[in-house]
Computed example of a mutant assay.
Amino acid sequence: MSRRSLHNPAPEAATLRSRLDRAGKAAADAGADALLIAPGSDLRYLVGQAGGSFERLTTLVVPASDTPPALVVPKLELPGYSDVPTDDLGIDVITWVDGDDPYRLVADRVGKAARVAVSDMMAALHVLGVRGAVPDAEQMLAGPVLRELRMRKDAAEIAALREAGAAIDRVHARMGEWLRPGRTEAEVGADITAAIVEEGHTAADFVIVGSGPNGASPHHDVSDRVIEAGDVVVVDIGGPIPEGYNSDCTRTYAVGEPKGADVAETYAVLQRAQQAAVDAVRPGVSAASVDAAARDIIADAGFGDRFIHRTGHGIGLDVHEEPYIVAGNDLPLEEGMAFSVEPGIYTAGHWGARIEDIVVVTGEGVEPLNSRPHELVVLDS
C-alpha cells in the first residue's frame, strides 16, 4: 500500500522559496488568482518532491496574493512529503482523510478566485472536482505560467544536465559490447537498460533500438527483430539522474559495413544538418531558426520529406518540455535554455538515422552536453 517516493536530492530551501515566490508573481502576471499544482515535475520544481497522483487529491495551492502556499494532501500520503521543508518554505499543510471533501478544502483556500490555473497533467477527476467546488472560477492551464520559470535553467540545473549528459555518453561508449548480429533488439535493449542505471541514472526512461527498417520509425521501441550484419541501427536512450534531470542522446551505428549504397552520402547530409543547427544556437535567435538551419540542408539535399519531426525539444525535469525547436516557434532563445538538437532522415521500409545532442544556450553561444562522435559508428560484426 505504500506509495512513498525514493529519496532524491532536492534543491536548497532558499532556491525553492524563490521559485514559489516567482510562481506566485507569474500567476498574477497571467491573470490567475492561484496555481493548483498536481504531483509531477511542476511540483518537484517548486517543492523538491514530485509525489504521486492517485484517486485521492493532492495539490499545492500557490496564490497570486501574499497568502501562504498550501499543500492539500491525504493524511495517508503525508509521509511521502516528509523531506519537503514546509516550515522553511512557508507552506501550510492541510491534510484530509477518506470521507472529507478535499475539493472544498481547495475552494476554502482560493476563496473568491476569478481564475485558477491547474496543472497541465492534473487528472480530469480532480480538474472537474475543483470546478464543482469553485464553479465561478474560470480554469486555465498552469503550464504556460510555469514554463516561463522552468525554461531558463539556473547553474545547478545546468550542472545536473551536464552530469546526465556525461552519464548517457558513457552508455553510448559501451555500445560495442551489445550491438552485434544475431541478437534481437530486445536483447540489446535489456543490456542498455541495465547500463543506463549502472552509469548513474535512477532508471531508463526510454530505450529505442531501431535496426534496419525499424530505424525509419523515429519512436520505435525494441522488437524481436534479429539484428543482421550491415544493419544501420538508431539508438535513442535516456533517463533521469537522482536530481531528477534527464538525459536524451541518439547515435546511429552500423553493424559492420552498411548494406545500403546510399547510407554514406545520406548520413553525411544529416551530420552537416545537425552541426549547422548546433552552430546556429545563440541568445536572441528564434527557436524556429535553429529548426530551419537543419531542415534547409536536408531539404536542399532532396530529403525534406524524410525529416518528419521537429528539430528539438526542451529538457529538464521532463524529457520533453519547453522550448520546442520547431518551425513557427518565434520564441527568442535565452541563456539557460536547454534542448535537444536531433534532425533525422528516414527511408521507410529500409533504414533511418538520427543524431541528437542536448545543448544549453550560454551568454555568447552554445554548450553541447554530449560529446560522443557524430560520425556513423561502424561496429565490428
Rank of each mutant, 00 (worst) to 15 (best):
G132Q: 11
Y45D: 11
A287C: 13
G165Q: 11
E243W: 06
R17N: 05
H374N: 13
V97K: 14
D92R: 07
G165A: 12
W178L: 09
V255M: 01
P74A: 10
V116C: 03
V134T: 12
D169A: 02
V62I: 13
I315L: 13
I325Q: 03
I358F: 02
K259C: 08
D231I: 10
T347A: 04
E243I: 02
D87M: 05
L317M: 05
A264R: 15
S371P: 09
L35W: 15
Q49P: 06
R115H: 14
V341G: 02
Y81D: 07
E334S: 07
H313I: 01
V232N: 09
V61E: 03
V134Q: 07
A268N: 13
R174K: 15
E198I: 14
E356Q: 15
W96Y: 10
A277S: 14
T311M: 09
N329F: 00
G200N: 05
A203N: 00
I94H: 08
G48L: 11
G40P: 06
E12N: 07
R115W: 09
N8K: 11
E187H: 04
T58C: 09
V47M: 00
H320T: 13
D357L: 03
K112H: 13
S5I: 09
G314D: 01
P79H: 08
V326S: 04
T362C: 01
R310E: 10
N214Y: 10
K25D: 15
L161K: 08
G40V: 04
A288V: 04
E228N: 06
G244F: 03
V134W: 08
V359F: 12
P373G: 02
S381P: 13
T266M: 12
A338H: 03
S119W: 11
G365C: 07
P213T: 09
V359C: 10
S82R: 15
P85N: 10
T202G: 07
P69G: 08
M122A: 04
A14R: 14
A190N: 10
L46T: 00
V377P: 07
A216V: 04
L57M: 05
T193P: 02
R17Y: 11
F54W: 13
L161F: 04
A294K: 09
N370F: 02
D33I: 05
D33G: 11
E356F: 10
N246T: 05
L317D: 04
A27G: 04
Y253Q: 07
Q275C: 02
C249Q: 14
G312Y: 01
A70N: 11
A114R: 15
G99Y: 01
D305G: 06
P9C: 00
G40I: 05
N214P: 03
G182S: 14
D101C: 10
E322K: 03
W178K: 02
V62L: 12
G336F: 02
S340M: 03
S211M: 14
T347R: 12
Y253S: 03
V116W: 01
G111K: 12
V377D: 09
A173H: 06
A38L: 01
A287I: 03
G352R: 00
S65W: 08
V222I: 06
V73E: 15
V145L: 09
F54P: 04
A159R: 05
N8P: 11
F206W: 01
R180A: 05
Y267A: 12
V263F: 07
P69T: 12
V118P: 00
S65D: 10
V326D: 10
